[in-house]
Amino acid sequence: MSYAYLFKYIIIGDTGVGKSCLLLQFTDKRFQPVHDLTIGVEFGARMITIDGKQVKLQIWDTAGQEAFRSITRSYYRGAAGALLVYDITRRDTFNHLTTWLEDARQHSNSNMVIMLIGNKSDLESRRDVKREEGEAFAREHGLIFMETSAKTAANVEEAFINTAKEIYEKIQEGVFDINNEANGIKLGPQHSPAAAGGMAAGGLGGSQGGGCC
């Protein structure tokens, strides 16, 4: 299926916080109750519509296990968006956020949009991290924030789509150079820079006249 843009996402965070479940819920609308450890990386893709345009999300779901950290870091490259996930029922996963954030900032491009996600909001009775704490962390580090449940699907769509909207806005503002694939953004097959000119009218500072790729 054709798309106007393709955005690459990564999902990162401690093991067991629900990264793979979020992806599965978003792509397949299913929930997986058993923890199937992700060994390296998994992929998912889904088409969404933003501002009337088809946007394809290509999502890289990484392993949270410490043992795989150096391998998964190499997948951060060229991501336009990141979902940084913790588990609201496990404080340690919240405490590790700083490390994850440093990692992500170091190994990916500086414009990457990061969405902080407090997952497992359905487990209110076992909550260990207050919503306000998540909000404060996000504010402090310039992230967007949401609480989700991969089980009930609450806010899952929104988390992925709001991230895409933010990326789309950055494109409109000319922050992202869409001709540089290292930014995690690709124009669709029928939307070569020349063809896309009208679509992204005026918004693509410095990216016009890139010629045919």
């Binding site: 390296g40 990386v41 998994e42 992929f43 190499s74 997948y75």
Partner: peptide
């Protein structure tokens, strides 16, 4: 299975290490 997955697995810039999703 999908063309997408083949493409991502064959990304020669990132060179992801692919393992069976179901061991």
């Amino acid at each position: 299975e999908t063309e997408d997955e083949l493409q991502v697995a064959g990304d020669r810039v990132i060179r992801p290490i692919i393992v069976p999703r179901d061991s």
